[in-house]
């Protein structure tokens, strides 16, 4: 499926920002099942200082604010051709050892609630069956709701809140999958929802590493494995590794962010 993406992130500040940096992980890469035909990032109110590949082979752009700026806008646009591989991404490439994906992070540390969830998970069946069951189990325990108090909840906190968005689902899944012994990682990307062009936000899901198959994706919020409507952009141990934009700025200016995102089939 050929998907056209237009993604604008617009920040406004209530006072000039003397200095700031944004780490941008918004460049999807061509890989088996995903062909990036064209892609570009435009920055207004800042400039790209350097671009590099991080340890997860994500393409990263470091953007600096133009001094004294009160607005900065990062626009990504491009076309990506995606195949439906039933969520199978394939074997681990690069230098990152698989054990790294068993590590817990601040956002994916298993506590009593996650452990209880894991205890209830089925022990029978194939790896894929078990992981799909886990995904369903999480959606039941944590129904989808955008009515979330905080954006950076840990998996354990999400269980506590008992509702969440795709990011929260992914964190719970990753934490639980690791507890079950599967290397697991966070994926940020785009999803074309069938009934609309304007999407509310970029999407997030999870991948678990299954013997013989390699990485397999699970979109917990939608209860499926990613298909040809999903553009994989960045991966990592959790949201912080794969966040589309994360930054740091000097001064005390308050920040307001708005996102417009269009994903449509061509």
């Amino acid at each position: 499926m050929r998907l056209k993406v237009l993604h604008k992130t617009h920040y406004t500040y209530d006072a000039p920002v003397p200095y700031g940096l944004q780490q941008v992980r918004l460049r999807p890469k061509s890989r088996p099942g995903q062909l990036v035909e064209d892609w570009q990032i435009d920055v207004v109110g800042g400039q790209v200082e350097v671009s590099f590949e991080d340890e997860h082979a994500n393409s990263v752009d470091l953007v600096s604010f133009a001094p004294g700026q009160t607005e900065i806008e990062i626009t990504c646009s491009g076309t990506v051709d995606v195949e439906d591989n039933s969520g199978i991404v394939g074997h681990q490439g690069g230098y990152v050892p698989l054990w790294l994906f068993r590590r817990s992070t601040a956002l994916t540390k298993a506590g009593p609630r996650i452990r209880a969830l894991v205890n209830d998970a089925p022990t029978e069946g194939s790896d894929l069956d078990r992981l799909h069951a886990l995904s369903a189990q999480i959606l039941a325990a944590v129904p989808y709701s955008t009515d979330q108090a905080a954006s950076d909840l840990s998996a354990e906190d999400v269980m506590d809140a008992a509702h969440g968005v795709c990011q929260d689902h992914a964190h719970v899944f990753i934490t639980a999958a690791r507890a079950l012994g599967y290397p697991a990682r966070y994926v940020s990307g785009y999803l074309m929802m069938d009934d609309r062009v304007d999407q509310d936000a970029s999407h997030a899901w999870a991948e678990a590493h299954v013997e013989n198959l390699g990485w397999v994706g699970f979109d917990i919020s939608n209860g499926i494995s990613p298909d040809a409507r999903y553009v994989r952009v960045a991966t990592g141990l959790d949201y912080r590794d794969a966040a589309p934009i994360s930054g740091l700025r000097y001064g005390n200016a308050g920040e307001d962010m708005s996102v417009t995102l269009q994903v449509q089939q061509q």
Binding site: E49, F52, L62, L248
Partner: peptide
């Protein structure tokens, strides 16, 4: 992120070969 001693972004420049 609380460090006052470092240089924000130096790892990025480092990884880019700068």
């Amino acid at each position: 992120p609380d460090s006052m001693l470092g240089v924000p972004g130096i790892m990025d420049v480092y990884r880019a070969g700068g």
